[in-house]
């Protein structure tokens, strides 16, 4: 009996070591969920022989937390949004891409090349850009939706049926837009008003979900919800009668970027993936699937016809300004953390 155990243990230990050693050429991607079509992954592997190993997260903050809790050195690239690139670069978590390491770097559209969050694109390349606001189920509510009141001062039809994203950054930025105050404001009266406003709005919210932001609208579990523009296009394709709003107070604009992580175990392969994602042909496949927008030249002619006229991708003339999320300093952030915890408490 003991021998049997010993043999079993030895065999399984061997098997464990064997699986660990049998690693082929690969690149380990820490990615937002549902953000890369299988066809594109297969195409990359077919062209380069490199396997894509993928882990997913549902918010920039969760990605940062996982990386800081021992994730560094295990992933090659991740896909942080604008403000998060700045934070990660500031924390020394990103590796510099040297001149000439990316053959296709010239394909980046000029407006996305010298961006404030990554001047000269030292650490990252554009992945996709789009907007965050909210969508409303038109079967439930037919009134005017071009206002952030839908989320923070919901009409009776939507009360208790609103889903919020479970990300502090986006909820707080949206709330600041609603109040007409600056993000990362340190004005006491403004912050108190912000806190009171959120507390008053909370009873109208049914849940905090990021990864089910689309499904709750499709299934009818929520009648309105914060969502990313391309995600609402997908929700409509899945049969939801939802309309994406461009509120007059303004909305969030973001750019997600593929960033090279410090201590990447497969750095060379990561650069190959980045080059791959700067080829217009591949970016077109990606963009047609995500239904967001690309930051690479030469993609537009390759896009599906519908994408050009997609309501989600074309803000109406009377839409408010699109603003990027700002990263607050540690002291200010502590105040926003308190507001957020009190909100979810």
């Amino acid at each position: 009996m003991k021998n049997t155990f010993a043999r079993l243990a030895a065999t399984t230990a061997l098997a464990l070591v064997a699986t660990a050693a049998a690693a082929e050429e690969k690149v380990v991607v820490f990615h937002f969920f549902e953000y890369m079509p299988q066809a594109l992954i297969d195409k990359f592997t077919a062209e380069t022989g490199i396997e894509i190993v993928m882990d997913t997260y549902d918010s920039n903050e969760a990605m940062l937390a996982t990386l800081k809790a021992g994730g560094m050195g295990t992933y090659d690239v991740s896909v942080p949004a604008d403000y998060m690139v700045k934070i990660m670069a500031g924390e020394g978590m990103l590796d510099e891409i040297k001149d000439g390491e990316l053959a296709n770097k010239g394909n980046i559209e000029p407006q996305w090349l010298d961006v404030a969050f990554d001047a000269g694109r030292k650490y990252s390349i554009p992945y996709q850009w789009g907007s965050t606001s909210f969508a409303v189920n038109r079967d439930v509510y037919q009134g005017d939706i071009a206002t952030t009141d839908i989320l923070f001062d919901s009409p009776a039809e939507l009360a208790g049926k609103v889903n919020m994203l479970d990300t502090q950054g986006e909820v707080m930025a949206m709330a600041a837009i609603h109040m007409g105050i600056e993000q990362c404001s340190t004005d006491r009266d403004q912050l108190k008003a912000l806190n009171d406003m959120l507390q008053a709005a909370k009873p109208n919210w049914v849940s905090f979900n990021s990864d089910t932001a689309k499904e709750v609208l499709v299934s009818g579990d929520a009648a309105a919800g914060m969502i990313w523009n391309g995600f609402n296009a997908k929700a409509r394709a899945e049969g939801a009668n939802t309309e994406y709003a461009y509120p007059k107070q303004g909305y969030i604009v973001w750019m997600d970027n593929m960033a090279l992580l410090q201590d990447a175990p497969n750095r060379a392969n990561a650069l190959k993936l980045m080059d791959f994602l700067l080829e217009p042909e591949n970016v077109a496949i990606l963009t047609n699937w995500t239904q967001y927008s690309a930051g690479v030249e030469g993609v537009t002619p390759l896009l599906d016809e519908e994408l050009r006229t997609l309501p989600e991708a074309n803000p109406p003339a009377d839409a408010g300004p699109g603003v990027f999320i700002e990263a607050c300093d540690a002291e200010t952030q502590a105040i926003y953390d308190r507001i957020w915890t009190a909100l979810k408490q």
Binding site: V28, D55, D58, T74, D211, T212, E215, V218, S219
Partner: peptide, 18 residues
């Protein structure tokens, strides 16, 4: 670790989205 999933974590990733 990165990309290492067990059945429950893989299922969780899937069911979180309905």
């Amino acid at each position: 670790g990165a990309g290492v999933e067990t059945l429950p974590t893989a299922i969780f990733g899937a069911v979180k989205r309905g």
